[in-house]
């Protein structure tokens, strides 16, 4: 039986297309494995990144809270001492300030009370913490006095953040 020329071309085309489709199937099969593994890796990375981004965002929120303060100037420690525990002798030593992010400066102050009623000390600490921006007690060392009940030698390290000129 004579096969028409057009039909031959059709069969050749169909054959080529089927061969191409077969190769494409193989390529797709291999590529599916590659892309699936890549997707799995990306998924894993995305989970880690999401946790990291959430933590970073929470951390930035702390900074934003400070940035949102209307007055970003720290109250002087000496003023605090005068107002919270007037008449109490204290040695004050201000450490060198450290520049921080967004134009903020970290101030650290050592305060030593040779003898102070512990209640007065509590009053001073609370007053310092209630300031805005707050002073924070970074270290506290109390040695009870043998001679006077409720008194002791107290050493404090206060730290506070201040922004004078804006970011």
């Amino acid at each position: 039986m004579r096969v028409p020329h057009k039909q031959n071309i059709l069969w050749i085309l169909a054959g080529c297309l089927m061969v191409g489709a077969g190769y494409l199937c193989l390529y797709t099969w291999r590529q599916t494995g590659v892309l699936t593994r890549k997707l799995d890796r990306l998924h894993e990375t995305a989970l880690q990144m999401r946790d990291l981004a959430a933590t970073a965002q929470a951390d930035r929120a702390c900074l934003e809270t400070f940035n949102a303060l209307p007055d970003k100037t720290l109250t002087s420690v000496r003023e605090l001492l005068l107002s919270a525990v007037p008449g109490t002798a204290a040695r004050v030593n201000e450490r060198a300030p450290e520049p921080m992010i967004d134009g903020w400066t970290l101030h650290r102050v050592d305060i030593t009370f040779d003898t102070i009623p512990l209640k007065a000390m509590s009053r001073f600490i609370m007053a310092a913490e209630q300031e805005r921006p707050p002073w924070r007690i970074s270290e506290c060392s109390i040695i009870a006095s043998d001679k006077q009940a409720g008194h002791g030698r107290v050493s404090l390290l206060l730290e506070g953040l201040e922004q004078k000129d804006g970011p």
Binding site: T45, L52, A56, D59, C62, I101, E129, P134, R136
Partner: peptide, 28 residues
């Protein structure tokens, strides 16, 4: 992405620590 983000985060952490500590447990 993850490496760069982690490095950036760690770098930020150094300067953010005092701010984070301010929201920590009060010593008083």
């Amino acid at each position: 992405e993850l490496l760069v983000a982690q490095r950036a985060y760690e770098k930020d952490q150094e300067s953010l620590q005092p701010f984070l500590r301010a929201f920590g447990v009060s010593a008083s």
